[in-house]
Design a protein around this nucleic acid. Sequence first.
DNA 1: AATGAATGAGATTTCATTCAT
DNA 2: TATGAATGAAATCTCATTCAT
Lengths: 184, 184, 184, 184
Amino acid sequence: MNKTKSNILMAAIEVVSKKGYHPATMDEIAKEANVAKGTLYYYFESKESIFNDMIDSGISMIREEILEKIKVTEDSMQQLRIITRAILTLVFERRNLFKIIISQLWGEDIRQIELRKKMNEVMDFIEAYIINCVEDGYFEAANTRLKAFNYFGAMMTTAVYYLNLEEPIDHASETMIEEILSQL
Amino acid sequence: MNKTKSNILMAAIEVVSKKGYHPATMDEIAKEANVAKGTLYYYFESKESIFNDMIDSGISMIREEILEKIKVTEDSMQQLRIITRAILTLVFERRNLFKIIISQLWGEDIRQIELRKKMNEVMDFIEAYIINCVEDGYFEAANTRLKAFNYFGAMMTTAVYYLNLEEPIDHASETMIEEILSQL
Amino acid sequence: MNKTKSNILMAAIEVVSKKGYHPATMDEIAKEANVAKGTLYYYFESKESIFNDMIDSGISMIREEILEKIKVTEDSMQQLRIITRAILTLVFERRNLFKIIISQLWGEDIRQIELRKKMNEVMDFIEAYIINCVEDGYFEAANTRLKAFNYFGAMMTTAVYYLNLEEPIDHASETMIEEILSQL
Amino acid sequence: MNKTKSNILMAAIEVVSKKGYHPATMDEIAKEANVAKGTLYYYFESKESIFNDMIDSGISMIREEILEKIKVTEDSMQQLRIITRAILTLVFERRNLFKIIISQLWGEDIRQIELRKKMNEVMDFIEAYIINCVEDGYFEAANTRLKAFNYFGAMMTTAVYYLNLEEPIDHASETMIEEILSQL
DNA sequence: AATGAATGAGATTTCATTCAT
DNA sequence: TATGAATGAAATCTCATTCAT
């Protein structure tokens, strides 16, 4: 991607994660990106489209990262462990982006409805691996969709917990991973 | 509380849950409440204060509801079970308010920081019961704060899952309760 | 109509006739009307809707004025003479509004296409009276639509001519009327 | 003229006639001309100067075309007939340019005031031929300036009428010419 | 000769808030 | 107690123009 464009995107993540979508102004994003306001509109159609690009690049980053890392094993439980570690690491490393995603999951704006659709696809992706684990006998057969939700929710709340600690850790500890998987 | 005032509060919950805090305008809230815009300012100082009242009355409602219901038993595990059922029921019955709470937990607006403080108090409240359970030997001793977080997160994700089903259930099933408690 | 609203409409005619639709800013209209910019939006949805109201009230004014005046006679030629006098008088009295109408007849903006539709209805109206004259033997049968166009065009160019004179006259002279009718 | 430059001028006529002066953007003109936006500024000082060049080349084209064609006769009435045919033909062939001229005659922008001056020169030119006709006894002596206005106005309205027909004709018919001249 | 990324002044529009009634 | 006309600060967005290449 063009350097200025990705620069703007990073600035937007920074500002939006701090302020939320609406209070984050184009002026602030421009200032943070060290470009003129007009430049934002040279690269993006609207504030909404900056938001969408932000989310899309975030989600595809997760997917690519995970797909790359699970190649090393064929064992379904091992794969789920790898996915967990990968997502937790990403949540820590790109906490601002995740804050935005979580806070925008609610509400009936097109922006928010679209985001929910995208997150449902992420759920599909995770559920597929949980199904593999069930088929391989690691978990007992059950509502795998709900399990995927709980898995994701557990990751989020764990992350939120650690993110709020005074001395935030910046990596996914093995303890956290086991804690989350034990809930499945 | 004055009837007009609670009327406005209900209208605000309706509109804010649908649109989010910022896109919900005072005009819309007034229209939904069937009062003139000026009336909002007769009863509330500002939009922000409507929001705060909304949250405060929601949270104290939870607390009162729970304190009332757990009276029937002294057994800590029974009490946690009752709390779970109560919260789940409230989440279903007042889903709009909870949507607002969850979506406003993030970000650095005064409004949002204040909300997080209030939710931390709710966590204290829940943690206290989890500690009782640990002391009574129901769970093994561990990070009870994280347990409280996970417990609350599990409830939220479970609720979100069921709220998104085609045929939403409108009560807390015993299955859900056991599912959540088993994760502790 | 509300006083403030008609006040804004008059200010808009003043400014738009001087500057044209696009260069006329909402700031200037507000200043001319002695109200705050927000007030414009309290009474009108948009700049476009101010324009539309401006045109609509102008056109219905023409129609009402004419319908009122032609009541006095049943003779078709007399009626056409009355219409001519009425339109010319209006063009002189409300020259600013007519300037706007003429300048906005061209182009493919929705605003302009709508205006052309409205002016076509005015043409229908005029043509009807020309047809009466033809039927009564005042003119020889011919393309009455073209006659209506020419009639209107003649009125406009005559008006433009007199409006550009150093010492503008402010009424429709009988000479002008006969000049225009002689062209039919 | 340089090919790229005349290319830009044609593109500008196309876009401005469709949209009007202000809504026509330099971006659109550049796109229509298949050049980069910077190229517009390589050949023209500003948007305003593109407009002026557009008009000037249009007007001098009329003048040259007419001066060329009236050479064939010395009879003043014949010359006026030739002028009428020439202008009507041009109006049909370059209708977009004429649309722009007519729509920009109104208003007090420098651009528009300049255009009116130029059109007044065209009127001088036409009036001169009408005076010749009067002197040769073809019309009775009268306000020749007004006659020139009416003559031009008649041509415009006739043109507008035929341009709006379902099946537009693309040439000046002899009927139209006689119709216009008979009004003098 | 030609480009297109970058700009910033200025446009339209929104909306929480005020205040006279 | 309740109203709603009026406000103005601040938001998003547009676009003619510049300039380094």
